[in-house]
Design a protein around this nucleic acid. Structure first.
Lengths: 141, 141
DNA sequence: GGAAACTCAAACAGAACCGTTTGAGATAGC
DNA sequence: GCTATCTCAAACGGTTCTGTTTGAGTTTCC
């Protein structure tokens, strides 16, 4: 049995996840635990939600610990934005982990909701992690 | 500002972590948020606990998803244990990510509380992850 | 069509967690 | 010694989460 201590999963959730991982159907798990399949489904869903939360938490922390942070004003073009990211990385001694076209595409994807015609609609807060990943801090609308 | 949605950190915890990350003292953060330094300390502590929980959760899940699992009986020597791990990995087509002395040392460290004189005191449940990491499932005493 | 496996939403009581306050105690630098 | 910084524990009211039940829907395979 795997221990749950100091985890955001409950014992029940771990139990269900473990049996399901072994290939049991929800009904089989339900019978073994003395409950209904609908309940197993619900517990499994809650467990997955928690795992996703844990994943996002670690990503948030990595973002918070970003050693490089700066704000780019509205109206900036993507070309200028890419330049800015490289420049800030250089200043702080962080090597950006993307080549230019990669970074361009990455930022374009992240900022789809904040841009039109290759220019930013709103000002955007950016960061670079220790590993050189580019992050956008501003929440999606 | 960084978003907290779908995370196990609360907005308050993220707020404190963020300001602290910028180098503010707890008292400065307390003044900015209109509370006491003891409170900031408590919130910061809760936040760190949550981050640790998230880390352990992901590790637990990686363990649960281990494709190779087996139990080693009490009395097994570390030499035999190491052999067993390699054999099980071979059987399942998983390449163990350690060379022999590494694996030996790794297992020795993990099983310190469960062994004496190079032999296991108790039976131990083991697993190999997809990446070939060796895990011990049995909880520490 | 029908059965099997699974999902979804609403409701409920009990448990866990939150931020905060209070008061006391480390720990380090001057 | 004093001060600044941070920690720790106990307690509190309030919020959130948990597992469960019930009843009704998918989706998928035969």
């Amino acid at each position: 049995m795997v221990a749950t201590e100091a985890t955001i999963l409950t014992d029940r959730q771990r139990e269900v996840l473990e049996l399901r991982e072994k290939g049991r159907t929800q009904k089989e798990v339900a019978e073994q635990l003395g409950t209904t399949d609908a309940n197993v489904s619900a517990v499994e869903r809650a467990a997955e939600k928690n795992v996703e939360k844990a994943r996002r938490t670690l990503e948030l922390v990595r973002t918070l610990r970003a050693p490089v942070r700066f704000t780019v004003p509205a109206g900036t073009s993507f070309d200028a934005l890419v330049d800015e990211v490289y420049a800030r990385g250089d200043d702080a001694g962080v090597k950006v982990a993307y080549c230019r076209p990669e970074l361009y595409a990455h930022l374009y994807g992240m900022l789809e909701g904040h841009s039109s015609q290759n220019h930013l609609d709103t000002s955007v807060e950016m960061g670079l992690t220790e590993g050189g990943e580019a992050k956008v801090f501003t929440a999606e609308p």
